[in-house]
Design a protein around this nucleic acid. Structure first.
Lengths: 174, 174
DNA sequence: CAACTTGGATATGAAATTCATAGCCTTATG
DNA sequence: CATAAGGCTATGAATTTCATATCCAAGTTG
């Protein structure tokens, strides 16, 4: 009776949130945009459980945001990549980044990713202004560079996840 | 063990999604940005159940996105408004709008909300470009105008919700 | 002044989602 | 043949969300 639902409405925001209106989907898209493509890497960096990840990837694929392709035929392994539709979520991710940096960080500890204007290689303001050019830069004209600290954190996460895997499957301990 | 969690990370996107990484929060923020402020209006336009709405408003208030104030002392009634922190989610909402319009709409039926450049009153492209000025316009320089169809849909939703209320509380029928 | 309405919620139990943990399958490797 | 890597699926418990009903205080009606 309720739930106007993502489809019975003209509102584009309701449509969008119907597809990516949950924490996991957003984090998965973030990872794919950062260039990760393998199941385990996505799992390690998002912190999703394997079934959450599998379910979300399936839904993202069904919704046309993600494409699955085999990167190895012999043991048949797949990788996940964003489609054009998926890549165009970049502005959403960037907006969440800006807001998170401005309003959710404990103090001024510098952005996790520094963004640069491709045209002049100037580092951009959080809001996308280029101090050199004095314009708001489109996302297609930006280049991102993770800070050392953020890269370290991600490496750490990857390592922890490998350990976590090593601990679980076989025998719990002994 | 898993869940890097919104707080144990430098990633601003994880922080953001920790606060507004769910469908209802986003739709509620959308409504507040559109100027709605009363519980029932929020409920009617988002389609959330009253407890979802109450819970989310409470959380949004605790997180500093929303402020509650009494608009009537006598029967003590409250209204909800975005704080500066909440208002600055506009770019996220606009990005979701753009993406929804470009990738989720059935066909070209015109945007639900038309956006204009305050400076020149030109209608903006979906991506925020101003055809007249040739620049990407910042959200603070925009003005939105709901289409007639979208306004109608919202009026309809409000009316349906009133009916729905009238039907439920007393006796189902007879 | 009893009955009803309005705005803003809370209570309850059922249904759906998510979680932690464990296991499966295929191929390669020792 | 035992083990490992990579990518999932199964299971049952814990948590969240839902639909529906109810509550409460203050006006309004009659």
């Amino acid at each position: 009776m309720n739930t106007p639902g993502p489809d019975d409405t003209l509102c584009p925001i309701a449509h969008s949130t119907g597809l990516v209106g949950d924490r996991w989907s957003i984090l998965i898209v973030r990872e794919l945009l950062m260039g990760q493509s393998r199941f385990q890497d996505l799992q390690a960096q998002t912190g999703a459980t394997s079934q959450m990840l599998a379910a979300r990837l399936k839904r993202l694929e069904a919704d046309g945001l993600v494409e699955r392709s085999a990167y190895s035929q012999r043991p048949l392994r797949h990788e996940y990549r964003l489609t054009a539709k998926g890549r165009h979520l970049m502005p959403v991710i960037l907006a969440l980044r800006t807001w998170g940096e401005q309003w959710c960080k404990p103090d001024g500890e510098g952005p996790a990713t520094r963004m640069f204007h491709r045209a002049c290689e100037t580092e951009l303001e959080l809001d996308g202004q280029c101090p050199t050019c004095g314009v708001l830069v489109a996302w297609t004209e930006m280049r991102g560079q993770p800070s050392e600290a953020w890269a370290d954190e991600r490496r750490q996460r990857a390592a922890d996840f490998k350990d976590h895997l090593r601990a679980a499957p076989g025998q719990p301990q002994d």
